[in-house]
Design a protein around this nucleic acid. Structure first.
Length: 289
DNA sequence: GAACGAGAGAACATTACGTCA
DNA sequence: AATGACGTAATGTTCTCTCGT
C-alpha cells in the first residue's frame, strides 16, 4: 500500500485554505487555483531535461495520420478538451490563445496515433520515464499550465496537449491526496494529544474537588485552595476569584463575576485555545512531542 | 450597475488498462 | 497461466470564475 516508485515531492503546495485544514506543510508556493505567470515558456530545468528526451519513444509511431480525427475528437469528446477550450471566447481575449497557439496545438498532434483501432476503445499509453521526469520538473515549477505552455510541452514530449493536461490534472489530484493523508495523520495525532490533555485536566479537577472537600484543618497551608473554587460549566476551567495567575493567564480576568468564555480569542467561538494558538504543522507536532 | 448566460478551466469521481507479485 | 492489488492514464461530471450582453 502506498508504495511509491517515485518521490512525489510532497512539499508541493496544496492550497490549505481550500480544505480549511491547518496546513502541515510549508505554505504553498503556488495555490492550485492560481494561474501560473510563466514568463518563460519552459523553465530552465525543463530545458536542461531536454537532452534526456533523446530517443523518446512515446508509445506511438510518428506520422500525420488521424490528425483531423483527433481534432474532431478533442473538440467533441470532452467539454474541457484543449481544442474546444481554445475555440471559445477565451481564445479571443487570451494573448496566449491566438491563432499561433491554435496552430501549435494542431501541429503538436502530429505523430500521435492512439486509438487507432477506434470504436471507443481507449488505449492507455504509459509515459516513458523521460517524459514523466520532464513533466515532474514542470510541475515543480508550476502545477498548472497555460495553453501555450501546454502545447510547447506536448510538442517537446511528443504528446498531445490533452495528454499533458490530463497528466497535470492527475498529478494535482495525487498531490492533494497525499496532502490530505498528511493532514489527516496530523489531526489524528493532535486529537490524541487533546484527549490526553483532557484526561489530565479532568484528573486535576477531581483532585481539586477532593481537596475542597477536605476541611482546612486537615490540609497543609501550602495546599490550601482558594476561598471559593468554582468551575465554569462550559469551559470547565477552575475559576478563582482571588488568584487568576494559573487559570487565566491570557484572559482578562477569570473571576466568576466577569468570567467570559473565549475571550482569549475574539471572534473564535468555542475554539480550543490550545488548538487556536498552536502553530499548525507537522513540524510543530514532531518538535513538541 | 445588476442579472444572466456562455465558455473555459480546474477539481473531483470514476473507469479502464498495464504492471507486478 | 491466472489472479488480485496497485498505479495511473483517460473520461465524464460538477463547480467556479470571467466576460459579454
Amino acid at each position: 500500500m502506498m508504495m511509491e516508485k517515485v518521490d512525489l515531492g510532497l512539499s508541493l503546495g496544496l492550497n490549505s485554505s481550500q480544505n480549511h485544514l491547518p496546513s502541515s506543510t510549508p505554505s504553498p508556493s503556488f495555490p492550485l487555483h492560481q494561474k501560473p505567470q510563466w514568463t518563460n515558456l519552459l523553465s530552465p530545468s525543463v530545458e536542461e531535461a531536454r537532452p534526456i528526451l533523446k530517443g523518446i519513444d512515446v508509445n506511438r509511431k510518428p506520422g500525420v495520420e488521424r490528425v483531423l480525427e483527433e481534432e474532431e475528437e478533442e473538440g467533441a469528446s470532452s467539454p474541457d478538451s484543449t481544442l474546444s477550450s481554445l475555440s471559445g471566447k477565451r481564445s479571443e481575449r487570451d494573448p496566449f490563445c491566438n491563432t499561433e497557439v491554435h496552430q501549435l496545438e494542431r501541429t503538436s498532434s502530429k505523430g500521435v496515433s492512439d486509438e487507432e483501432d477506434g470504436e471507443g476503445s481507449r488505449k492507455k499509453l504509459r509515459l516513458s520515464k523521460e517524459q514523466s521526469a520532464v513533466l515532474e520538473e514542470c510541475f515543480k515549477e508550476h502545477n498548472t499550465l497555460n495553453p501555450k505552455q501546454k502545447i510547447a510541452l506536448a510538442k517537446q514530449l511528443n504528446l498531445r496537449p490533452r495528454q499533458v493536461e490530463v497528466w497535470f490534472q492527475n498529478r494535482r489530484a495525487r498531490t492533494k491526496l497525499k496532502q490530505t493523508e498528511v493532514d489527516c495523520e496530523y489531526l489524528k495525532r493532535w486529537c490524541e494529544r487533546l484527549t490526553e490533555e483532557n484526561r489530565r485536566l479532568q484528573k486535576e479537577v477531581a483532585e481539586l474537588r477532593a481537596l475542597k472537600l477536605l476541611s482546612p484543618m486537615q490540609m497543609p497551608v501550602s495546599m490550601m485552595p482558594p476561598t471559593t473554587l468554582t468551575m465554569c460549566p462550559s469551559c470547565q476551567r477552575v475559576i478563582s476569584p482571588s488568584n487568576s495567575s494559573t487559570t487565566a493567564t491570557a484572559a482578562t480576568s477569570s473571576s466568576p463575576a466577569n468570567h467570559q468564555h473565549h475571550h482569549l480569542f475574539p471572534g473564535v467561538a468555542h475554539s480550543n485555545p490550545t488548538w487556536a494558538m498552536a502553530p499548525f504543522g507537522a513540524a510543530y507536532l514532531n518538535q513538541s512531542s
